[in-house]
Design a protein around this nucleic acid. Structure first.
Lengths: 252, 252
DNA sequence: CAACCAAATGCTGTATACAATCTGTATTCA
DNA sequence: TGAATACAGATTGTATACAGCATTTGGTTG
């Protein structure tokens, strides 16, 4: 359930195409609404059209691209409202996973793994040495906790739904971690998130499904706040992958 | 937001491959766990490997197939618990859509369209003439109401998430409609569902977000009940598309 | 008789050629 | 001068050839 074994193989052309196109789009090499001609990507990435097409199809599923009419793919743009909705969807599904975990019960070793993960985050936040790849380590541990939370649900179906929802740009639980050193009061945000982690774990251990659901939803809403902060901070915007895709215009 | 315009064109090879493979799998021509060799599908469907591969990738996203290690695709099997979880995911997202609709408000014409749809369902249930493609008409109207409900949320993001969740086998809101004439008391089930439709619409009109959410979740749980009924009824199982994919063994 | 190795077969990943469709432009006619 | 049509260019849809890898089967050896 935890990732279908990444299985370290030399990256295939398909992987190169997928990562390459995603990177090009998130970097803003193609603007929102712009077409992605397959042959242009062939030249840019040195990969033939077949893996390119597979990657385009996958990125359209992720929501980064849109299938254009009558053919082709275009870069998708994201309004603030849409990003907020994507975060809400992710939070809703995460809350469902947590509720299932609380209802069905979680095995002791799994609970201990979650607790251990939170201990490590505590230790990291206590040091708070900004030099030593602090955010990278936090991001990794934070992802680990969220992965353990989903696994705790015991439902592969929910895990799949959640991983698809988290694949949407700006919707993943680590979407705004990379900019935490650009905004003021970020350490406080991370500590608040960690307190919520503790509460969530406690509620699951107590089998309190009624309590864990709003806790997780509230936890996801930190991303909303981060979104607001980023949009008000030009420096932070520069560090946010995919920032060029955000459109400020109200088009609805 | 309501379907990206089906746009009646002569079906492409890609469409033929997608529909053809889905049909083969749901009919049980390939059993759960069995590989789907591309060349076999080429012969069966008269389409080259390129559209076949695109269709396989799409069906894997839908959840009907699984990417096998190290390569290829296999037919996925579904336990009762997994189907129940998929229904729960769909219900959760539908409830989110309904809550958003209640919170944000829905324009009068849209509400009238929903009411009109329910009136038609009432009329259909009042006739209840089993001969005249009753279930087909019901399915169409039911789908229409649920589509209007999602649109009422005003969120394309939620609509996308929901359409992906509903694409999972047995998770769509019309998954069990086709077998309503095989199980006893089905008319009562449909009438109950319709009462819930009315309550949902009333709650949205009243902007009562706190009330509409549990109503929609409860409405989705009718599918749980239908699932139970089907599993206990061999006649109904024969009419259920994809029935061969359901595995009764507890494998977890 | 069992176990292991090697060769062969079948499958998928990738590239590319070809066909069909769409778009944009230019030209012609009203 | 405007609009409509035809043609040209570009882009995607489709088919297929080729290469690499995995699995399986057959034989051989301990």
């Amino acid at each position: 359930m935890t990732e279908p074994i990444p299985l370290q193989r030399d990256p295939s052309q398909a992987d190169r195409a997928l990562l390459g196109i995603r990177d090009l789009v998130l970097r803003g090499e193609f603007k929102a609404g712009e077409r992605l001609p397959e042959l242009a990507l062939v030249e840019l990435l040195g990969v033939s059209r077949t893996p390119i097409r597979a990657a385009l199809q996958k990125l359209a599923e992720e929501g980064l691209l849109d299938a254009a009419q009558p053919t082709g793919y275009v870069v998708r743009g994201f309004s603030e409202a849409e990003i907020a909705d994507a975060i809400e969807v992710r939070g809703t599904l995460e809350a469902l996973a947590a509720r299932m975990a609380a209802e069905r019960g979680v095995r002791r070793p799994h609970l201990e793994a979650m607790a251990d993960c939170l201990d490590r985050i505590d230790a990291l936040l206590a040091e708070a040495s900004p030099g030593s790849d602090f955010l990278g380590q936090y991001s990794q541990l934070n992802n680990r906790f969220h992965a353990l939370l989903v696994d705790a649900s015991g439902s592969e179906i929910v895990a799949r739904a959640l991983s698809r929802a988290s694949a949407a740009p700006f919707a993943g639980n680590d979407a705004f971690v990379s900019i935490q050193d650009k905004i003021p009061g970020s350490l406080e945000i991370l500590k608040t998130a960690q307190r919520q982690h503790r509460e969530i774990l406690e509620a699951i251990e107590a089998r309190s499904s009624a309590r864990v659901e709003p806790l997780v939803k509230e936890h996801a809403r930190i991303a909303h706040r981060n979104l607001q902060l980023v949009l008000q901070n030009n420096e932070a915007m520069k560090s946010l992958p995919g920032a060029p895709l955000i459109r400020r215009t109200r088009n609805r």
